[in-house]
Nucleic acid binder design. Structure first.
Lengths: 132, 132
DNA sequence: GCAATAAGCGGGTATATGCACACACATGAC
DNA sequence: GTCATGTGTGTGCATATACCCGCTTATTGC
């Protein structure tokens, strides 16, 4: 009897959880990946793509493309840093609004997950996330 | 102080774990998603896309596209079922070989994750996966 | 100051994923 | 038998993600 694939378990769980967050955030027109990215940008005011990639643990090119979507939707502004190679990103007023509108919806999801998993599994999730 | 986003924790952890499995399976030319899909097909010998989607908890169209990649690579064969609407999938000889070659590599990943997380977090992961 | 190297980006290519829509085939009511 | 309804697919469109390559802009060694 083969053991269950831990990776597949994670992937499936993540898809389902992300779908729940996406559905909750839909009224604001953003998904959970975008919400997380907007939050990172807000926390840093102004940040380069490479720095965002480092913080988000994502490939720089992925960040660049995701930021492009946010920019198209008017949620962030981009420009050049002092270092002319850097593309710096910051929230637009609409981005600030969207983030403010999304946060209570996100909070509700957080509470829902906490209720669903219970404190022990929430702690385990944190531990797993730090371990990998 | 805002709580960490459970969804983002999951997404990040999953990306990292999946990358490890993908790297391990690279010699066989498949990734972890494909490995999981091949296993599901093998376990059922012959199966329709809708059934695969149900088992994998994936959208049918996603399954259809993923199967198309496996077919292009010669790992599965597709045809029509008795119900002419159904597209049935089965492993090709090369798919059987690839699966056999991949399994020890996958096993090594499983052991690595077990070592990294420890029995308690492995059990917690199982519990989380079942809870969502 | 200039050449070599490093760093930051953008775009091409590829996979995984979901939703909506259109089309084909099956089934059941009559 | 025929028509309405339901089921199974395929495709278009969109996002997230990673890797590789080439271009531009620092930085560094001398």
């Amino acid at each position: 009897m083969t053991s269950p694939c831990y990776c597949t378990q994670l992937r499936t769980a993540t898809r389902k959880v992300a779908a729940a967050y996406d559905a909750a955030l839909a009224p604001v027109g953003i998904n959970i990946a975008q919400y997380a990215l907007l939050r990172m940008i807000q926390n840093r005011q102004q940040v380069s793509l490479t720095e965002l990639g480092r913080v988000a643990d994502l490939d720089r090119s992925t960040i660049g493309r995701n930021v492009k979507v946010l920019e198209r939707d008017g949620l962030v502004q981009t420009g050049r840093g002092e270092d002319q190679r850097e593309a710096v990103v910051s929230l637009s007023p609409r981005g600030v609004e969207a983030l403010a509108a999304a946060t209570p919806l996100w909070e509700a999801c957080q509470r829902q997950i906490e209720k669903r998993l219970g404190a022990d599994k929430i702690e385990a999730l944190r531990a797993i996330a730090h371990a990998v």
